[in-house]
Amino acid sequence: SPVPAPTATLVRVLKNSNTLGIAIEGGANTRQPLPRIVTIQKGGSAHNCGQLRVGQIILEVNGISLKGQEHKDAARIIAEAFKTKEKDHIDFLVFEPGL
C-alpha cells in the first residue's frame, strides 16, 4: 500500500485558559530538528482545542517558521505567541509524520 504522504495541518488554538500547556522537544542542531509535541497538559488551551496531538511536529507559529530555530528560541516564540494580547489565538502549522 502506498506510504501515506505526510500532511501539514493548520491548527488554531484559542486562548481559552490561562495556560497553553504543551511540552516540546528538539530544535535546530539536535536529532529532532523541528520541535515535536511530547506532552499536552489537560485543561490547557492546547488540550482544549482538541486538534493538537503528541507526536506532531510544529513547522510554524503564527506564520513564523521554526526551521533553523534553536530549542530555546522555538520555545520562546511559542510562549510569546501565547502571551501576546494582540491575538486571542495561536495558529500552529503542524505536521503529522506518517499520517
Binding site: L20, I24, G26
Partner: peptide
C-alpha cells in the same frame, strides 16, 4: 559518531 547530541532538550510552554 553523530554530530547532533543524542539527548534532546525538552521545555514546557505554559
Amino acid at each position: 559518531v553523530s554530530k547532533n547530541p543524542q539527548w534532546v532538550p525538552v521545555t514546557w510552554v505554559f
